[in-house]
Design a protein around this nucleic acid. Structure first.
Lengths: 241, 241
DNA sequence: CGTTATCTTGATAGAGCTCAATTTCAGTGG
DNA sequence: CCACTGAAATTGAGCTCTATCAAGATAACG
C-alpha cells in the first residue's frame, strides 16, 4: 500500500514511521508545485537567500562547472530527492542544476523549513536523515572517483542508482529506466564521454550490465556487487515495499 | 580579541554573531574533553547510535577503506571541525577516522545536540551552517578529483587548507604548519604517494608552493589561485580577525 | 529530409601507476 | 656514542589506463 504515496513519503518511511500530522505537513510542504521542462539549467550565481526544492517527478542533476568549461556532476536527483537543500544555509550557493527530464518540483524556502522544525520535529529529523543520506552518497561518490577504476566505478554507480530508484518504487534494482545520456554519465563519473562508451561496452560484453535505450539491466548483479565492492550500508535504507 | 576564543567559536563567529547564551552553550558543549594520541584509528563498524566529536586541538582525517586495501580520505579535520557529525543520524555510520596528530576532542551525542536545538536555536543554525560548509568542501573535493589534473588539484587543496586554517587563527593563508604526510596527502587527492611526491616537486620548481618539513609556504599565491581556479565562495567565510 | 545531438569505433598521446631502489632522518637499543 | 630499525621522502624506468583527435553511424526532430 505504498504506491499510494509520493516518492519522498516512501523514502522517509524507509527511515522511520511518520505520524498523521507528519504526513499532513509533508503533503503541505509539497503543495505549490511547478513544472520545469527537460534540459533547463538553473544556474545559481550567489543570490541569497536562495531556496531549495523537492523533486516530485522526473530526473535532474547538480553540477559545478570549472573555468576551463568542463563540468563535474555532483549527484543525480530522482523523485523524492531534494535540490539545493545543502546550500540553503550558505550565503553563497555552490552549484547549479540541470533538469534531465521534464520535472515537477515544490519550492521549499527557509521559513517553511523552520516551520517544520517547530511544528513536526519527527518529520524534521526525517528530513535531516534524508540530507545525511544524500551526503553519504556524495562521499561514496568521492571515494569512487578517487579510488575505483572506470569499470568498477561505472558498475557501482549503476548499482547505487538501482537501489535508490527501487526505494521510491521505480524498477526492482535489477532493471530500471534511466534517461541519462552518456555525456552526463561521463561528467558524473569523472571521465570522458568516449571512455564511458567503451566502459559500457566492456560491461555489456562481460555480461554484467546492459545500459541501452534508456534502460539499465543487470545480467549478473551479484558479480557486479562483488567486483565493485558495493555495500548498501551507506544508503541506510530499510526496503519499504 | 578573537584569539581568546577556541577554534569552533571563532569559526561560528565568521558566520554570524553569537549571543552570550550561545557562547555559554558552546562552552558547555565542549566540556568533557579527552585526549587521543596521534596515529589512532577510530574505525566505525556500524554501531548505532554513534556519537560525534568536536575537534578542539590537533589534526585528524576521515576516510573510507576499500576492499582492495586502498584508502580514500574524505576530508581533513582541523581545530574547530566536527568529526562524524554527518552520520549522527544514519543507522550505519559510513566512515572511519584517523588522528594525524595528538588531538583534544569533546564528545557530542545526539541528546546534547537536541538540547542545543531546543535551547539555543541561533547556535543550532550556526552548527548547521558549519555542517553545510563541510559538505560544500566535500563537494569541491569531489569536483577536484573528478575534473582537475594532479598539479592543479594539489595546489587547490593546499590553498583551501590555508584559508580554513587562517579562519581559526593558524597561519596567514600563505604560510602554515601542515603535519600531513605525503601518503595521507596522496590518499586525500586520489593519487599515489609516489606521484604526489613528483607533483610537489613540480609545484616547488614552478615557484608556486613549497611543502617541506611540515610547513606549507606559497611563493606565488595569486598564480596558484589562477591556475587552480580557486574560488573562496564555497568556504562561505567572512574573515574574523 | 536535412539538422543536430547522441552514440560508436579507431589511432595515438600522455598522465599517472607500478615496480624497484636509494636516501633521509628520528627513534631505539646495545 | 653508534649501529640498527622503520617510516617517510625521493628518483628512475616501463607500462596501463584514460584522454584526445578524427570520423562515422544512428536516431531524434523540426
Amino acid at each position: 500500500m505504498n504506491e499510494w504515496h509520493d516518492a519522498l513519503t516512501r523514502k522517509l518511511q524507509a527511515f522511520k514511521g511518520l505520524g498523521p500530522e507528519d504526513m499532513e505537513m509533508l503533503r503541505e510542504l509539497q503543495k505549490p508545485r511547478s513544472l520545469i521542462e527537460s534540459g533547463k539549467e538553473v544556474v545559481y550565481e550567489g543570490q541569497y537567500p536562495h531556496s531549495a526544492y523537492i523533486l516530485r517527478e522526473g530526473w535532474a542533476c547538480s553540477y559545478k562547472r570549472l573555468r576551463d568549461g568542463s563540468r563535474q556532476i555532483i549527484d543525480i536527483q530522482i523523485p523524492g530527492d531534494f535540490l539545493g537543500l545543502r546550500s540553503l544555509l550558505l550565503r553563497a550557493s555552490d552549484h547549479s542544476f540541470l533538469t534531465i527530464t521534464d520535472v515537477e518540483v515544490a519550492r521549499l524556502d527557509r521559513q517553511r523549513m523552520l516551520d517544520v522544525f517547530r511544528r513536526t520535529p519527527r518529520l524534521a529529523v526525517g528530513l535531516m536523515w534524508a540530507a545525511s543520506r544524500d551526503e553519504a552518497m556524495v562521499v561514496e561518490h568521492l571515494v569512487s572517483i578517487g579510488r575505483r577504476g572506470a569499470f568498477e566505478r561505472t558498475a557501482h554507480f549503476l548499482l547505487e542508482l538501482g537501489e535508490r530508484l527501487k526505494l521510491v518504487g521505480i524498477g526492482d534494482g535489477r532493471t530500471y529506466p534511466c534517461p541519462i545520456s552518456q555525456s552526463i554519465l561521463a561528467d558524473a563519473l569523472g571521465m570522458t564521454a568516449i571512455h564511458i562508451n567503451r566502459v559500457l561496452r566492456q560491461l555489456r560484453e562481460a555480461k554484467i550490465v546492459v545500459f541501452r535505450d534508456g534502460i539499465v539491466e543487470f545480467l549478473d548483479i551479484k558479480r557486479a556487487a562483488e567486483i565493485t565492492g558495493f555495500e548498501m550500508a551507506y544508503l541506510d535504507q530499510v526496503p519499504v515495499n
